[in-house]
Design a protein around this nucleic acid. Structure first.
Lengths: 242, 242
DNA sequence: CGCCGCCTTGACCACCATCAAGTGGAGTGG
DNA sequence: CCACTCCACTTGATGGTGGTCAAGGCGGCG
């Protein structure tokens, strides 16, 4: 993706809109006319089970597309909700279809974005299935630190975590009570500290070791997006400027 | 994808090769020169953890691409291994790059395939995190029935399951012992029957109900692939003929 | 001030892992 | 044809991780 492509993509976005925390952005089954892109805030993909429990299957950070799916697939197979207040850019679905048909480099950049999403999902699946709860949390924190750092929202030893313990539980398949206890233990062990809504990490290497975190699945060296690290990440400055 | 596109894609495949059961097709970290496509047999994506346990994160059935990733991303972030003897078609990576750059409809069909994979991953994540082991198995069986039926390898009440209980455990994050006990219970309850390497389902609706299976995430109505249901599924007859 | 989310703590117990041993069938070689 | 081996499946006993239920603390906001 070069500057011309980037300009082309910026040009097609509709004015951004605000979404309050805990409000849905798109619901399962819908066939929305626009594709959504997170500019600010944290959103999540989730499904609700028959027993009422919510399963969070992805976090959407600034620069992430919510639903490129609907430009290609027919309907949403899950819901997207804002975890914090969010600013969302909308791009008409027809525009995406036009871009992918006529601008191969943009098509590749978008495809790249979905492949990275897929890599993250595979890693979450491993995390979910095979690790004890303390390592699950450690792994998740490492990923959040890495991904937030890519868009300038985290440092080597600190990142904002505007999630409740219940939301962490919905993400990792743990009960709220157990998340609470595990977090306390991790604090005692000096793996993390929690002050207000930010996590600080005394020793990132140690946390990575403990959480068996290997960032290769994030594919941070994106050759299709120049210096930037996510297809839309490249657009953030331009889109925010409006 | 129309007939011209399909012919174009068929034309670029190299002669197929055979892979023995339990042999790897591509390993984590590799940057292969060809993209692989399963023609016959069942393969899986997996990662190995520091403690030696294997996590299976996807099944690859006939018609599924193994590693479109490497045409776009840089390296494999997981390994692909054959679970049964497999026949694999190879397509040069450069050809994929050429196709995606110059044949938008093919590019979209491939992108579509990765989006469906992503949908399956999300559903696996839900399954993994939120359901008790018997429902996990039920859900997995329903998915296998549905996906195998799409390529003509399953009927409404029977499908081949050439997997060991250990492999099922690696997939669902359960111990072999526990998989065994749960399967027995499911047989007692009349949810499934196992004879040799095939599963038969007395009452598919009941199994779906029990496993909370909703096939919407498989996106079986693919408008980008004409009558067929997977990008490569459309190619299977042509490629097998060689 | 009072309410409502969110976090915290305790008691109890179930699901599922682990360890260990044993069964049975398929393939192999004497 | 019959040992022998190997691998998948099976069964039992035991214990820990993490779920559930219930109650209490605590800070923010109207």
């Amino acid at each position: 993706m070069n500057d011309v492509d980037r300009a082309r993509l910026e040009a097609v976005a509709l004015p951004s809109r605000k979404v309050a925390a805990r409000e849905d952005i798109i619901r399962e089954g819908e066939v929305p006319e626009n594709v959504n892109l997170v500019l600010e805030g944290i959103a999540c993909r989730y499904k609700v089970l028959p027993n009422g429990r919510r399963a969070i299957v992805a976090f959407l950070l600034p620069g992430d597309f919510c639903d490129l799916h609907v430009a290609i697939l027919d309907h949403m197979d899950h819901t997207i909700g804002a975890l914090t207040p969010c600013t969302i850019a909308e791009i008409p679905r027809t525009t995406i279809e036009d871009l992918t048909a006529n601008w191969p480099r943009i098509a590749r950049a978008l495809w790249w974005a979905t492949l990275v999403d897929e890599g993250i999902l595979r890693e979450w699946l491993v995390n979910m299935g095979q690790r004890p709860s303390d390592r699950k949390l450690a792994h998740l924190f490492c990923e959040l630190q890495a991904r937030l750092a890519l868009v300038g929202l985290a440092t080597e030893n600190e990142f904002p975590l505007p999630l409740t313990q219940e939301e962490l539980g919905d993400t990792l398949g743990l009960s709220t009570v157990h998340v609470n206890r595990v977090l306390q233990q991790m604090r005692e062990d000096g793996l993390i500290r929690l002050q207000g809504r930010t996590v600080s990490i005394p020793d990132l290497a140690r946390l990575k070791e403990f959480g068996e975190f290997n960032p290769n699945y994030l594919h941070r060296n994106n050759k299709h997006d120049g210096a930037h690290h996510s297809a839309a990440g490249a657009l953030l400055p331009g889109l925010r400027r409006r």
